[in-house]
């Protein structure tokens, strides 16, 4: 038996969509830089689709792709591109995903991946999960954990926790003891610069209508 030189396997991967509110490259660059600062681990060869809706076919797609790449984002496809875009797409080797709403929450149809970190995460360490993140241990002050999905810490959370870093508004953060420096969900963050008085107990953080809710359980 010889294996075929090429074989196709069907599969689906979650793909982040990058949408733009304006056409100005300088403004886009500034925003990319800010987002990269927020979550450096995320911007590490992150494959994504560009939503071309607000752009016009005359716009320079090559420069936009190059700009994205320089911030660690790898455009591999586009959404919402009309026929006028086709020559540029061909030239840049980008796939066309057709007209799709950007906000299809993929996790509703498909189980998210879960990363389980066994042990403590110490000051200066950073752990990232493309899906959910479960920490079996504590997260020290000065440590940072990030997840595209939910974060659960079975121990004390003293560092920074950022859930839904790819825009998932329904992401949650849960921990057994809460003493965090910062929590964020889908970019909405809250700093705790004053240490709370002792043992805060278990806490769940959610995002409701743009507000971070911290619920003691």
């Amino acid at each position: 038996m010889t294996a075929a030189a090429v074989s196709l396997k069907a599969g689906s991967v979650a793909l982040t969509t990058l949408s733009f509110s304006q056409r100005d490259l300088t403004a886009i660059e500034a925003e990319l830089a800010r987002k990269q600062q927020e979550a450096p681990a995320l911007f590490c060869r992150l494959p994504c689709a560009l939503d071309l809706e607000p752009l016009q076919p005359g716009d320079d797609l090559a420069s936009l792709v190059e700009l994205c790449q320089s911030y660690g984002v790898l455009p591999i496809a586009v959404r919402n591109a009309g026929p006028d875009w086709q020559p540029q797409l061909q030239a840049l080797g980008l796939a066309d995903l057709g007209r799709q709403p950007a906000k299809t929450s993929h996790h509703q149809t498909k189980a998210r991946q879960v990363k389980i970190h066994r042990g403590n995460i110490r000051s200066g360490q950073q752990v990232f999960s493309d899906g959910d993140l479960i920490v079996l241990g504590m997260v020290s002050a000065g440590a940072e954990i990030l997840a595209a999905g939910d974060i659960h810490v079975y121990g004390t959370l003293r560092g920074r926790a950022l859930a839904g870093v790819k825009g998932e508004q329904n992401a949650v953060i849960g921990c057994q003891q809460f003493d965090a420096e910062l929590v964020a969900i889908a970019g909405q963050y809250r700093l705790f610069d004053e240490a709370p008085k002792q043992a805060e107990g278990a806490v769940v953080v959610t995002l409701d209508a743009g507000n971070l809710n911290i619920t003691h359980v």
């Binding site: 042990g119 995460i121 110490r122 000051s123 200066g124 360490q125 020290s140 002050a141 000065g142 440590a143």
Partner: peptide
């Protein structure tokens, strides 16, 4: 805090 940091380095 520094001890915590050095433990992280030790274990990585």
């Amino acid at each position: 805090r520094d001890s915590d940091r050095i433990i992280g380095i030790l274990q990585s």
